Computed example of a mutant assay.
Amino acid sequence: MASGSLRVNETDLKLLIRSEVEEERATVTHKLCRSMDRMVLGDEERLAAQKMIAYLSRDTAELVRRALAVTLRASNLMPNEVALRLAADADTVAIPMISQSPVFCDDDLIAIVRAGRIFAQIAVASRQGLSRDVAEVVASDAAVEAVRRLAANDNADFSERAMAIAVDRFGHDEETVTTLANRHILPPSIVDRLVLVATEQVKQHLISRHKVSVDAAVRLSDFARERATLDLLDESIRSQNLPEFVKTLNARRALNASLLLRAVARGQMTFFEHGLSMLAQVPHHRAWLMIHDAGPLGFRAIYDRAGMPPRLFSAFRAGVDTWRSMQAEGAELDAEAFRLRMLERFMTQMHTLGRDDLDYLMERLDMVPTRDHAYAARPHIAVA
């Protein structure tokens, strides 16, 4: 960096003040700003330079303000208040400042993201060394285009929490999922979630790069299909087409213990009855009687006839008993409240299960996101 006094020659000064040709003023702006940025300035000279920068930032010509922003986009000489004014300017002026200026603090960048201009959000997301706090705000508040840019920015402090937020918001967006999958480092929990929503090609990339077992990938995909199937249940019940729906699932080999367990734990008892009826090959009215009115032996008989896993019988028994007690109470609950209450009561009855079976239930019921949280959430459960 050169040392010397800050001087503006008379010709340049006249052009800045008097010229009506914006190209001339832009050329002088570039020349002057480059000179100022390269010099070692004393306190008084630095103050004079910043006053000149403030003056140039108010030029009516966008071309001049762009010359200022581009030339000083990486300079600490730029005053913070001027940088903020330029960040609110036209995109050709704002983008160089937002994407590179070191004078912005995290609060400045967060405010820029929350202002809602997409090009500005993208510029923030592309910054080198983007902090964790700002990255999380981009993930939670910014448009999908900015979240994609953040996902592609391996120099951002993109935390596991922020990645989870991004997947929650844009897991349906193929480009976002693909860009996230191509990051150099991904937490295991994010890898698992991406496998659920990724295309087959991206899924294979995740399996090979992040050491996801093929069995785990298939299991996660099955979970996604089961959740989607349960989402269709209410519509099938309203249309009185549930038997046909169950028949279709059975033909596709999708009517299994995992799906039925999810349904029971969410209070979808009619679906469970029809499912067990289909698997046991008995009429629905008989299945209903064996599940609800024939005592414990009747339920066990149709459960075994349906080829259901013996080790999970107590879980299904607890689910049926929980549903029956809630029906007897007659509480006025909407569908979501009933589902949550059903899950809570159902899980408190899992005191006879071993740890492996309890993990199986936790996974199927989506109760907790990780294994550590699962153990932390079950102090009331006595594990056999």
Rank of each mutant, 00 (worst) to 15 (best):
E81V: 05
M52Q: 11
L72Q: 02
L47G: 11
L72S: 01
E62L: 10
E24M: 03
R117C: 10
V113L: 06
R38W: 10
I53T: 02
T71F: 03
L41C: 10
R65N: 01
S99P: 03
E81F: 10
D107P: 03
D106A: 13
V124A: 03
A111T: 07
L15I: 10
E45A: 06
S99E: 14
L84D: 00
D91T: 09
D43Q: 15
S57R: 07
R85Y: 11
C33Q: 08
L16R: 04
E81A: 10
S99W: 03
F119Y: 09
V70Y: 07
G116K: 12
I110H: 05
M78K: 06
A26T: 01
G129Y: 07
V28D: 00
D12L: 04
L77S: 08
T92A: 13
L47Y: 11
A94V: 07
R46K: 14
A120I: 04
F104M: 04
E44H: 08
S5T: 08
A74D: 11
E22T: 02
P79Y: 13
M52E: 08
T71I: 03
E10H: 06
L47A: 15
T71W: 01
L77K: 12
M97A: 07
A26Y: 00
M97L: 13
T71M: 07
V21A: 06
L16F: 04
R18D: 09
T60M: 14
V113H: 00
A83H: 02
T92W: 07
A111R: 13
E44R: 14
L63N: 04
A48S: 12
V103S: 08
